[in-house]
Design a protein around this nucleic acid. Sequence first.
DNA 1: GCTTCCGTTCATATTCAGTTCATAATCCGG
DNA 2: CCGGATTATGAACTGAATATGAACGGAAGC
Lengths: 224, 224
Amino acid sequence: MTNILVVEDNNSLRRLMRIHLDRAGYAVYEAADGVDALKVLDNTPIHLMVVDVMMPRMDGFELTGELRGAKIKIPVLIVTAREALEDKRTGFQLGADDYMVKPIDMEEMLLRIEALLRRSGISESHLMSVGGMALNQDSLTVTRGARIAVLPQKEFFLLQALLSYPEKIFTRQALMDEIWGYDSDTDPRTVDVHIKRLRERFHDFDNFSIETVRGLGYKAVVRA
Amino acid sequence: MTNILVVEDNNSLRRLMRIHLDRAGYAVYEAADGVDALKVLDNTPIHLMVVDVMMPRMDGFELTGELRGAKIKIPVLIVTAREALEDKRTGFQLGADDYMVKPIDMEEMLLRIEALLRRSGISESHLMSVGGMALNQDSLTVTRGARIAVLPQKEFFLLQALLSYPEKIFTRQALMDEIWGYDSDTDPRTVDVHIKRLRERFHDFDNFSIETVRGLGYKAVVRA
DNA sequence: GCTTCCGTTCATATTCAGTTCATAATCCGG
DNA sequence: CCGGATTATGAACTGAATATGAACGGAAGC
């Protein structure tokens, strides 16, 4: 069971998050601000935090700063209002962490959490669901409604990588690093071929698509 | 991901630095002297350099001088032996840069690097919000309200450059240097065309505009 | 041993971002 | 208000990047 701490002063938003996280099978802990959060962290092994940057008493920056100072490296999903993006202190460590802009789409939140957990090696659940599809890493299957497709390894992991961060552009090299391994000597163009096959395979499935960003790489677009 | 170039002729010290930087989540590049460093800089977008002042072939001063001449403003963390502090040439640009005295404490190095990145605004540069718009460099998108626009690279970086200093006048050459690279041989008039396309793209968006400063260049004007 | 399927490479077709060019519009000093 | 210079605009071009089709080799399964 994965423990998630939600640090959010807005009660109704916090409750909403709780509901969705509960439903997704996480154990949810709540805190209304940074001071509360630290208390919870003292008593419970938390695997991931969802933190609002704007809170009374101790805000998100102070909280994460406090944790970094104590060398605790829990992945943090930061929630911020668009205006707050201008805040100079927004310099959290991308790479381990991620952010979302309000208003929060619950579906997106779950996706990002799954991705963070996977990236930090915490997730044992090799399951992921995006836009009405379920990806199962153990069987390399993609389930959509009644249809089940078994994908070749490379195609599966490619799709999984892209869908972990919808809209985020992945360079070929980034995908190679993640899937083929950092030191592979396979031609990065191979990615193109797999992308083509994925597109072909899912061409009749309009919940998502893989788009080309010329000069950079590829990204997944998930539709509502 | 932040790219750091370590320029240090002492192999064991360089390797030690690499290990700590790796562990801190940076992408590390290495060079044994200034000449090597320039090669790396030609091929890779480096965000920060750690440079030893005492090196064979081309030393740290020559290297940073070279870069300044080429108007490249990468923050530099200078490593120096205590005796070398008296060197007259120590007049590097504090403000953007910082220095450390040997022996190097790795913990301290990481702190200084973080500070430099924060100061130079690189660690947060993937996100920017101006006048109700959010620019996301990871996806080359501009979000305004519910609408999301994906821009071609050149247009995106042009817009980002202008908006990062509203009201500041950029000459075509300055924009070329920053986006195309200082050694590009593209006609500076090309900027005009991209400006036109940006204006067209955002003509129905009145939170900002790009204005011509005759004889000088362009500037962005953001409205309240 | 034969077949099937995956991953890769290669050769070729297609696309499009970026650039250039030609021309029109605008500005500004005199 | 004229003329030279600067900028805007529309359109064409092009080369690099991507898509596509096909073929090859090797591993797994039969």
